[in-house]
Design a protein around this nucleic acid. Structure first.
Length: 191
DNA sequence: ACGATGATGAAC
DNA sequence: TTCATCATCGTA
């Protein structure tokens, strides 16, 4: 059971897509090499009003693909050195995307792109085999109890939007630990 | 705790 | 054209 996810999967409410991306497989094929891993951590960036989203200030050259068709890669550079990979969700004209923050064995969005050799030339490309980067459903089903919803990382400037639990983590991903202070989980940490 | 490193967007 | 900021990471 191996099915390449297409536009119909991504052209739905962003939070649903984000949650359902856990357990799916990111596949990269370039120069005869294939890299595959199960997605274990994602974040949703949803609409014009989401202050943490690049789309909040309106359409620009960088974020234009977020306003376009679902099922397209949105790849950009942050902090001068890390590429981030997102997949566009929702209908055309509605800016939204899901950031892939971690896969099994590779936690951290900058590490994911490095591991999969993903960089800006993929920005704006459709997620399909022909473009060398796509998402597969391989039949893994993740139970709601295995998912933790947390605030997004690195968006403290976004006020109330920073507190929304738009980050989805697959708990059984072995490397994910939760630090606790006063008994409350605060953030994921990487080991 | 901090510096690396460069693109982006808003101000001037 | 300048400037602050930034969906981070490795080293300390």
């Amino acid at each position: 059971m191996k099915k390449v996810l297409t536009k119909d999967f991504f052209e739905r409410p962003t939070l649903s897509v984000a949650r359902e991306m856990l357990g799916k497989y990111l596949v990269r094929r370039v120069r005869g090499r294939e890299v595959v891993a199960m997605i274990t951590e994602v974040e949703a960036y949803d609409g014009f009003r989401d202050k943490a989203s690049h789309a909040h200030r309106g359409e620009t050259r960088r974020n234009a693909v977020m306003f376009g068709n679902a099922g397209v890669w949105y790849v950009y550079l942050v902090y001068g050195m890390h590429e981030m990979v997102n997949i566009v969700t929702g209908g055309k004209g509605y800016p939204a995307a899901v950031l892939i923050r971690g896969v099994e064995g590779v936690l951290g969005p900058g590490r994911v792109t490095k591991h999969f050799h993903i960089s800006r030339p993929l920005d704006g490309k459709v997620a399909e085999e022909q473009n060398g980067l796509w998402v597969e459903d391989r039949g893994v089903r993740i139970h709601a109890k295995e998912i933790r919803r947390l605030p997004r990382v690195g968006v403290a400037y976004a006020g109330a939007w920073a507190e929304k639990k738009y980050r989805f983590v697959y708990l059984s991903s072995k490397r994910f630990k939760t630090k606790r202070t006063g008994g409350r989980p605060v953030r994921g940490s990487y080991h």
